[in-house]
């Protein structure tokens, strides 16, 4: 049986005790099975709160949320059995070896009965551990204590651990924060492989916009609300348009020519001519006779869109810089 949406959230609200406003303020979204879903937003936007509710770690105040078809408030055990979670702070036991951490997890999830030694574990367990260790490239260090591991290696162990029970959804709460660029790149490579081979839905929160570029769907959260959602190319496409960047030795001639043909443009040189259905790049360059020194199509980046959206949706107190502008 497969279902279309593996996560469904309807009007979710969370207000912490003694808080004056809602940390999550009426959020609704859906995630398709197998999708790579990214949750973006500044610190304090409500991302971690949302992920804590979806993973049954925190009680919601109101609204509905289901994961894999089970209510996160009333069917906690069913939800937990179907999700894997990689937390913001590493959650490995430093006193144990990597494999012991994984074995501990497998027994807790009822996959295999507990055995005090690796050698006594069933063959299926060993095969699964080795298979995953191979994917994340940590096979040689499997039996070393966690205390000897680097941050990136710990993350990899956590990825293996969270995948042992073949979860439908893998939640990753800022998984690459604090990792050096190379480790970050590696972790993403492993996640990509894992996604391809296990067809796991990935639910990611992150600060790094480039990590969200390849997501199927993005939600941007600010002040507890969803302020934008869509595919990476859709995000902010109504706010920030692609434009043609033009310049010429004789700027006055160029400006006059653009105006004569009725192309809107900004700047005093180089000029920016917004692109639209009426004014395609092709239309513009066909019309221009002035010799150009610069010609470039600028596509809006996710980062531009993100900054624009966050600034537009932050109150004046929340962002004095945008208020002054």
């Amino acid at each position: 049986m497969s279902m279309l949406y593996v996560i469904e959230v309807e009007n979710l609200v969370k207000r912490y005790r003694k808080a004056e406003k809602n940390a999550v303020d009426g959020v609704s979204f859906r995630v398709r099975e197998g999708e790579f879903f990214a949750f973006l937003g500044p610190n304090g936007a409500g991302k971690t709160t949302t992920i804590s509710i979806l993973t049954t770690m925190l009680a919601k105040s109101s609204g509905e949320a289901t994961v894999a078809g089970f209510d996160v408030a009333t069917a906690q055990a069913e939800v937990r059995r179907r999700i894997g979670v990689i937390f913001q702070a590493p959650s490995l036991d430093k006193n144990l070896t990597a494999e012991e951490n994984i074995r501990f997890h497998a027994s807790l999830y009822g996959l295999f009965g507990f055995r005090p030694l690796y050698a006594l574990m069933p063959r299926a367990y060993k095969a699964r551990v080795q298979e995953l260790a191979e994917i994340v490239g940590i096979r040689d260090a499997l039996f070393n204590p966690i205390s000897t591991f680097s941050g990136g290696m710990k993350r990899r162990i956590e990825i293996i651990r969270s995948l042992m029970h073949k979860p439908r959804v893998l939640f990753l709460d800022e998984p690459t924060t604090g990792l050096d660029p190379l480790s970050r790149k590696n972790v993403w490579e492993y996640l990509r492989t894992v996604r391809r081979e296990e067809n796991t839905t990935i639910f990611l929160t992150t600060h790094y916009l480039e990590e969200a570029e390849e997501a199927d769907h993005i939600c941007i959260m600010n002040n507890g609300r969803i302020v934008s959602s869509g595919t990476p190319s859709e995000i902010g496409s109504d706010i920030i348009n692609a434009y043609l960047m033009l310049d010429a030795k004789s700027r006055m001639t160029l400006a006059a020519e653009l105006a004569a043909h009725g192309f809107p443009f900004t700047g005093t040189g180089p000029f920016r001519a917004p692109l639209s259905k009426q004014h395609t790049a092709q239309d513009i360059i066909r019309a221009i006779a002035t010799p150009l020194t610069l010609l470039r199509i600028h596509e809006p980046t996710l980062e531009e869109a993100y900054i624009e959206i966050i600034n537009a949706t932050s109150g004046p107190q929340a962002n004095p810089a945008s208020a002054a502008a």
Binding site: P90, Y109, G110
Partner: peptide, 14 residues
């Protein structure tokens, strides 16, 4: 405080 309890308390165990 070491956040290991997250792993413990996220498990589908009573």
């Amino acid at each position: 405080e070491n956040d290991f309890s997250q792993e413990l308390f996220i498990a589908p165990v009573s």
